[in-house]
């Protein structure tokens, strides 16, 4: 039996929204410790890794590890019916052929319940090594969203370079070149406005802007985004969910042929 109650159901809705443009069908893996997702887009260019600790939930019971195979467009349709302040309850039997979702609102006294058929999804799992990255940058997630959105008018590819000067995003296309440089900035009283750059050696990598824009769908989950880069490796773009979990994206770089 799996049963989980999340007072702030909106967190789960935002997680679904942060993934649904990249993948259609996903397995949500339930264990005694957490709910987690690992999935790739159909082109195997990007990977999403989500974790939400059992401590995020008001009630969490998982007798046996199980995978809930979900079709995200359908899940998203159901979450459209969830109110902003609703509590979410998930329930599944060990056989896991259907998922019960409940949205409860104490103020209005409403309880909405849905039964969703689950699917058996064959997903390719990747072993992602725990790497020490050469550059780690923390910045406001809204700034990152604005930069990758704005640069799309210049071209399809974004060069991200981390040097002593700062973190530079560049795009080149038919109309010319655009560069946006972020310098380290810890002047603000609010820590979430800080830009911190931890660089062991300079790194420069190229990425598809289309994917970077997909990842910014996670912006509502976190005021801060963490970018990690090493030469010749996929970038990691992490949105921490308070102290309770994260949505991490890995994106393969574009390389010289």
């Amino acid at each position: 039996m799996f049963e989980a109650r999340l007072a702030n159901g909106n967190i789960f809705k935002m997680i679904v929204e942060s993934i649904r443009e990249l993948v259609v069908d996903v397995n949500i893996d339930c264990s005694t410790e957490e709910l987690s997702i690992q999935c790739m887009d159909s082109a195997h260019v990007a990977l999403v890794s989500m974790s939400l600790s059992q401590s995020a939930f008001d009630h969490f019971r998982c007798d046996r590890s199980l995978s809930l195979g979900l079709n995200l467009p359908n899940v998203s349709k159901i979450f459209k019916m969830m109110g902003r302040d609703d509590t979410m309850v998930l329930k599944a039997e060990d056989s896991a052929d259907k998922l019960m979702l409940m949205f409860e609102n104490d103020k209005s006294g409403t309880i909405a319940d849905f039964e969703l058929k689950l699917m058996a999804i064959e997903a390719e799992q990747l072993g992602v090594p725990d790497t020490a990255y050469k550059c780690s940058i923390s910045m406001p997630s809204s700034e990152f969203q604005r930069i990758v959105r704005d640069l799309q008018v210049m071209g399809d590819t974004c060069k991200i370079s981390c040097t002593k000067e700062g973190l530079k995003f560049s795009a080149t296309g038919q109309i010319g070149t655009g560069n946006i440089l972020m310098r380290q900035n810890v002047a603000s009283e609010k820590e979430e406005d800080h830009v911190t750059i931890d660089m062991e050696e300079p790194v420069e990598l190229n990425f598809a802007l289309r994917y970077l824009n997909f990842f910014t769908k996670a912006t509502p989950l976190s005021p801060t985004v963490i970018l990690k880069m090493s030469p010749g490796l996929p970038i990691v773009i992490e949105y921490p969910i308070e102290q309770l979990g994260h949505v991490k994206y890995y994106l393969a770089p574009k390389m010289e042929e």
Partner: peptide
């Protein structure tokens, strides 16, 4: 020209 890599060149399949 730049070529888009896939994650299989970097990570192992489980």
């Amino acid at each position: 020209p730049l070529k888009q890599g896939t994650l299989f060149s970097f990570f192992n399949k489980h």
